[in-house]
């Protein structure tokens, strides 16, 4: 159900946490050796890159439209279900990745044009509420269509190299690399293209951008589609690593929002930094101790950071050349 359960099976690093606190797993002291540390590092990087991919989509939508899309996690879930359904119908796995992203992206455009657009003027809370309703709607809709039981998507590549006594599944390596490649592509799109310039202008000052001839309504729709497509892609990509259930998106939307809260909005780079903190801590703590406590401690850390830096850690030097 969450990637931590799959990614992190080892618990070693933090053996100072008292045994009695652990709900289920007594802490067993494991020899800390280079191989295990390397494996943990790999797990953390893999988890962070996937989280960054999901959070990036949320970031764009939130930064661009100041819209909180609570259904972002359900887009992730829809991507995973799209992958599962298409595989069942015999479509090639790698084609499915593109198809899932495309389908969820189109769904995003439809939603933006039909629902979200109506709520821009009303402030972010009503958008948040409407998309909250939408997320439950999608979740239960999928539950009605396919049932609540977990579905499993087979990994297209099995096996992987063994380094220092630990196996590194090829598919997980591939997920990491693909996620990083897509993130890089999005960064290039935003920082190096004409579209990116217009998009950033819309983020910084929508009215000024509109006055200078940027079609902000179109920008909003496109960014929403891009954000949804990223979530759908991530969902399809992660499907073999997770059990595919209707509620799987909730974890991801919460985690992505923690990234946004830690990092602050404004720069697209902040998403990556925030993902590194949230994902890294969760993976490390899960490995060392327990997944539930990992989430609790992440929440406490995020909340403490809010007291110190209410607008996020990575605010300050933001958009190139503006403000």
């Amino acid at each position: 159900m969450n990637f931590i359960g799959v990614v992190g099976q080892l618990r070693l690093l933090l053996s100072f946490v008292p045994d009695t606190l652990s709900p289920r797993h007594p802490v067993t002291l494991v020899d800390i050796n280079t191989g295990l540390l390397l494996k943990q590092l790999f797990n953390a990087v893999s988890a962070v890159s996937l989280l960054a991919l999901v959070a990036l989509g949320l970031f764009i939508v939130f930064g661009m439209m100041k819209v909180i899309n609570m259904a972002h996690g359900e887009f992730f879930m829809l991507g995973a279900y799209a992958m599962w359904q298409l595989l069942e119908r015999g479509v090639n796995f790698w084609v499915n990745l593109a198809l899932a992203a495309l389908a969820v992206g189109c769904f995003g455009i439809v939603l933006e044009r039909s629902i979200v657009r109506r709520l821009y003027a009303r402030g972010d809370l009503s958008t948040l509420l409407a998309t909250f309703g939408l997320s439950i709607l999608l979740q239960r809709g999928v539950a009605i269509a396919f049932g609540d039981r977990p579905q499993f998507v087979a990994s297209p590549i099995s096996g992987g190299p063994t380094i220092l006594g630990n196996t590194y599944p090829t598919y997980q390596v591939l997920v990491m690399l693909l996620a990083m490649a897509v993130i890089a592509a999005v960064l290039i799109l935003f920082l190096r293209t004409d579209f990116g310039l217009r998009a950033r202008a819309t983020i910084v000052n929508p009215r000024m951008a509109a006055a200078l001839g940027v079609d902000t309504a179109r920008m909003n729709a496109l960014s929403f589609a891009l954000g949804s497509a990223l979530a759908g892609f991530a969902g399809a990509l992660a499907a073999p690593l997770l059990s595919v259930v209707p509620t799987m998106g909730l974890d991801w939307v919460v985690r992505s929002f923690l990234v946004v809260i830690v990092a602050g909005v404004g720069s697209i780079w902040a998403a990556l930094g925030g993902a590194a903190i949230v994902g890294g801590w969760e993976t490390g703590f899960t490995a060392a101790y327990d997944a539930t406590y990992a989430q609790i401690t992440v929440l406490i850390i995020v909340w403490a950071l809010v007291l110190v830096r209410p607008r996020g850690l990575f605010t300050g030097r933001w958009r190139r050349g503006t403000r």
Binding site: I68, V254, I261, W303, P310, R311
Partner: peptide, 10 residues
């Protein structure tokens, strides 16, 4: 005094 949405999410 964070953004109001942060409270909602937390």
């Amino acid at each position: 005094r964070t953004l109001p949405v942060y409270y909602a999410l937390i």
